[in-house]
């Protein structure tokens, strides 16, 4: 247990930044767990994105971490405060599953793939490369990223554990 380092939890529609230990989010379904990593400063960020775009928001006070188009800029801003440099950042992402398959043409049902697409667009806008991805499918995931080396550990019930 000595090696056990501090794990910072990232809730649903939440984001967090740290420099040591690891960041973890549980039970990703259609949500996307997006991580950004600066290998020089070790500043690591994670966002649990729930919806693709804040344009559809009907809430009074916007939760920045919930939408792909607001969470990523906010995450970058917080990481910069901790000493990260934007053009050193590398992204990894997991989640965006479609838990239940429906023939319904309701767009809400495709929320997982749409979250992934939206995250990619925003990352592209900041010219941040995606170096690892485990998205889609129809199963849930729990992810954890180590600040030490930026390795992202992905666990799922059906597919076991893997690292990217």
């Amino acid at each position: 247990m000595i090696e056990e380092s501090t794990v910072v939890k990232v809730g649903m529609a939440d984001l967090n930044v740290c420099r040591e230990g690891s960041l973890r989010t549980t039970g990703l379904g259609s949500c996307v767990g997006l991580t950004l990593y600066d290998s020089i400063s070790k500043v690591t960020g994670m966002a649990h994105v729930m919806l693709p775009s804040s344009e559809i928001a009907r809430e009074g006070k916007l939760n920045m971490a919930k939408y792909a188009d607001t969470a990523i800029p906010e995450l970058i801003r917080l990481m910069q405060e901790q000493g990260a440099i934007v053009n050193r950042l590398k992204a990894k992402m997991a989640g965006g599953a479609q838990m239940f398959a429906f023939s319904s043409n309701n767009d809400m049902m495709r929320i997982g793939p749409r979250n992934v697409e939206s995250c990619k667009q925003v990352l592209d806008h900041f010219s941040i490369p995606i170096i690892g991805e485990d998205t889609g499918g129809n199963y849930g995931r729990t992810i954890e990223i180590r600040c030490e080396d930026g390795i992202l550990n992905i666990r799922s019930v059906q597919k076991g554990t893997k690292e990217i």
Binding site: C31, M99, A101, G140, R141
Partner: peptide, 27 residues
């Protein structure tokens, strides 16, 4: 109801599916 869909998976991941509409309105 629609045709049933069964999933054996993490509770967070499956229940998440029912919360999307609420996501637009709050937390």
């Amino acid at each position: 109801p629609t045709v049933p869909q069964l999933a054996i998976d993490m509770a967070g991941a499956v229940l998440n599916y029912g919360l999307i509409q609420y996501g637009e309105m709050g937390d």
